[in-house]
């Protein structure tokens, strides 16, 4: 067991060395060349700041109780909440719209021009309307993430549905599956699933990028994105960096988790799904 783990580490030797070197160079540059904690906090400064965010307690209201948790965890939970609100809304609206557009030719022509006009508007440009329509609450932040996540989901679902091989539809028809809803459920959805999943993955990436800006306009007193601005106003750049790195690692983690879930789901019938 221990030996196996050691072997694994050994195989990743180059990668580990690369990260360690980067950290050492960062530390040396910060300490001996820049010599300005405000301009470039060093690795040890950031590590110290990290420990403070973990050791201090914050309050997370959960089902009527006020849970006392480390500040960093509270911020993470707030951010995940904003992110989930946006992503779930995008899934609930985006997947049906994409399915309908891909399956019914005439409806594609109805939806397509509207989508093509709205799609190029950057999600962050919606912030003023998010405030006016929804207000300064988690759902306002969720709305911005929703706008960012919606279009990749619609477009990929649409493409997946449109490129369902005709042969599967015809094979199903001669086997007695002729109604539209049966064909959608039994043929089109499974056939389009890899494409839909890829769309969700892109949407999660875009949504995550919108998070910092979505929390910027004061929807809550917590959140990873909010804390970046909060610490910037306090000139605590080491804390800014802590939250930046946490955002990066968490984004990576979410993507990895989703990808391994997909691989588990699809590897049975699709070898080498490129995601």
């Amino acid at each position: 067991m221990a030996r196996g783990r050691f072997q694994k580490l050994k195989n990743k030797g180059v990668e580990i060395l690369s990260v360690i070197s980067a950290v050492i160079i960062w530390q040396l540059v910060a300490d001996y060349i820049v010599r300005n904690r405000f301009f470039l906090p060093s690795f040890t400064d950031v590590a110290e700041a990290f420990l403070i965010t973990v050791s201090r307690q914050g309050i997370f209201p959960f089902m009527g109780m006020d849970l006392e948790l480390p500040v960093l965890l509270v911020d993470t939970l707030y951010s995940l909440m904003h992110f989930s609100i946006g992503l779930v809304a995008a899934l609930v609206i985006g997947i049906p719209v994409g399915m309908i557009m891909g399956w019914f030719r005439s409806l594609e022509r109805v939806f397509d021009p509207i989508i093509e006009i709205i799609r190029p508007i950057p999600p962050l440009a919606w912030i003023p309307f998010a405030i006016i329509w929804i207000g300064l609450n988690p759902f306002g932040a969720g709305f911005v993430i929703f706008v960012g996540a919606l279009f990749p989901i619609i477009i990929n679902t649409f493409t997946g549905f449109k490129s369902v091989p005709r042969i599967y539809v015809e094979a199903a028809k001669v086997l007695g599956c002729t109604a539209d809803h049966d064909l959608i459920r039994r043929i089109a959805i499974p056939s389009a699933l890899p494409s839909i999943a890829a769309g969700i993955r892109i949407a999660m990436g875009v949504g995550w990028m919108c998070l910092v800006a979505a929390e910027m306009f004061g929807v809550s007193r917590n959140g990873l994105g909010f804390k970046i601005w909060h610490n910037y106003y306090l000139h605590r750049m080491d804390f800014v960096l802590v939250y930046m790195l946490v955002l990066g690692f968490l984004g990576l983690l979410i993507d990895r988790a989703f990808r391994s879930y997909l691989e588990e789901k699809f590897f049975k019938w699709r070898t080498g799904v490129v995601m």
């Binding site: 042969i167 015809e170 086997l175 007695g176 002729t178 499974p190 699709r270």
Partner: peptide
Amino acid sequence: LSPGPKRGMVFQEYSLFPWKS
């Protein structure tokens, strides 16, 4: 007038549903 299970069909292209065993 429409496809039905009384007439089975085998296609030239591989038509098995890849997501089903």
